[in-house]
């Protein structure tokens, strides 16, 4: 579904991605692990068309995405739930959802999708007319997911949806990821929380210093020595 080859992105002289190649299969949850500063968020922003790569290719359902605007990429069925959520703080919850459907023209479909989001995220329904900037971190994360879903993506990119949230809220987020997966949405997830990610994802990549250093399924991930120590902690050995 998503095929990334030799992707390289720099901020001025700093190379954030140095030839990243990986792929995400349709119907799967693919998880990208890696420490801070590995280039995970840079990869996500490059995929969404926000950052322009130096070279490399990104194919989504066979079509090249490099050179396309963020708007064209959203229209093609790929949406990002960005790091730090980035909701529109001065717009209401409902307006945030409507903005998420900006590229769609079917007014009735949008309305029924908003209702569906309120059904799925009942806490957002209670806060419908509230400004998004006044929501709690967990609620903002829900809103960011709902806003991305409003574009009806076939592939949902999620950049560290659990960061900075209370354990209960993290569990809720991962429950939603599982739910979306079972409904047929493909997901490309960036996470630091490897334990939680192992419960939902089928395939894993590890990224370090701008390139991919491991690829495998959850079994292979648990076997790998380095990953054991770095991401899963010692308690799994005992």
């Amino acid at each position: 579904m998503l095929e990334i080859t030799q992707l390289a992105t720099s901020y001025g002289k700093i190379e954030a991605l140095r030839g990243v190649s990986l792929s995400a299969k349709a119907g799967e949850v693919t998880c990208l692990l890696g420490p801070n500063g590995a280039g995970k968020s840079t990869l996500m922003l490059t995929l969404s068309g926000i950052l322009k790569p130096q070279h490399g290719s990104v194919k989504f359902e066979g079509e090249e995405l490099i050179g396309k605007t963020p708007a064209e990429i959203v229209s093609r069925g790929m949406a990002l739930v960005p790091e730090n959520r980035l909701v529109f703080p001065a717009l209401t919850v409902r307006e945030n959802l409507m903005a998420g459907a900006y590229r769609r023209r079917d007014t009735n479909g949008i309305r029924s999708d908003i209702d569906a989001m309120f059904h799925r995220f009942s806490r957002l329904k209670e806060r419908e007319a509230q400004l998004a900037g006044t929501l709690s971190g967990g609620e903002q994360q829900m809103l960011a997911v709902a806003r991305a879903l409003m574009s009806r993506p076939r592939l949902l990119l999620m950049d560290e949806p659990s960061v900075g949230l209370a354990p209960l809220v993290v569990a809720e987020i991962f429950f939603i990821i599982q739910q979306l997966h079972s409904e047929g949405v493909s997901i490309f997830l960036v996470e630091q929380n490897a334990h939680m990610a192992m419960k939902v994802a089928q395939h894993f990549y590890l990224m370090e210093q701008g390139s991919v250093s491991f690829s495998g399924n959850s079994g292979e991930l648990a076997e790998d020595d380095l990953i054991q120590r770095a991401y899963l902690g010692q308690q799994r050995k005992t």
Binding site: S48, G49, I50, P70, A71, V74, S75, A79, L80, P82, L86, V87, F88, P89, A90, L91, E95, M98, A99, G100, Y102, R103, R147, A148, S151
Partner: peptide, 17 residues
């Protein structure tokens, strides 16, 4: 709405298209 969104948060506005 798109005007308010773009003025509220540029990056987020790009992300929704």
């Amino acid at each position: 709405l798109s005007w308010r969104a773009a003025s509220d948060h540029r990056t987020a506005a790009y992300l929704v298209g």
